[in-house]
């Protein structure tokens, strides 16, 4: 029943799958700017654009782990800068709790993180995803919460 096998038998070529929910108004623009500036960031991060970090239902995070993500990152505007005025203040409360709640359920808190990244902070976007990617690489593949379907199919699953 144990799942603490994460670090063992990991394929040396293994690349984590990281999902980043990015706010349309800040972080997504920041990621865009990073691209325009030819900044290099890990290609194992998949960005999903959301209208606001407040749009990110905590269940998205659970589903991501269930469907095989190794890490989830939620990014939004800096507090005070929300396009919808208050969205990210709610995000902040919500995910402060969610992070702790997932940890309580046995997920390493480094696998689920939130960051404020503005449209001008291309460098911060690059640094953040690089750090998260490295953190998760060090942690190894996530098997917790995963559907047996993906577990049975191992690493070949894309």
């Amino acid at each position: 029943m144990s799942v603490d096998v994460e670090k063992k038998n990991v394929d040396p070529n293994w690349e984590p799958k990281i999902l980043s929910f990015s706010c349309n108004w800040c972080t997504y623009a920041g990621a865009d700017l990073a691209g325009l500036n030819r900044m290099k960031y890990p290609e194992n991060v998949r960005v999903i654009r959301v209208p606001c970090s407040g749009r990110v239902n905590p269940q998205f995070v659970l589903r991501a782990f269930q469907k095989g993500s190794d890490g989830v990152l939620v990014c939004g505007c800096h507090p005070g800068d929300c396009h919808y005025v208050t969205g990210n203040y709610f995000t902040r409360r919500r995910f402060l709790l969610m992070q702790r709640f997932l940890e309580y359920n046995g997920i390493d808190p480094r696998r689920f993180q939130a960051r404020w990244i503005s449209g001008a902070e291309a460098g911060k976007f690059r640094d953040t995803v690089t750090k998260v990617s490295n953190d998760i690489k060090a942690l190894g593949p996530n098997k917790k919460f995963q559907e047996s379907w993906y577990k049975e199919r191992g690493e070949s699953n894309e």
Binding site: R93, R94, Q99
Partner: peptide, 15 residues
């Protein structure tokens, strides 16, 4: 309710 409102100076961990 705690999740029905916010304070601008809430704990900040996401910087």
């Amino acid at each position: 309710p705690a999740l029905g409102h916010y304070e601008t100076n809430d704990v900040e961990e996401f910087m």
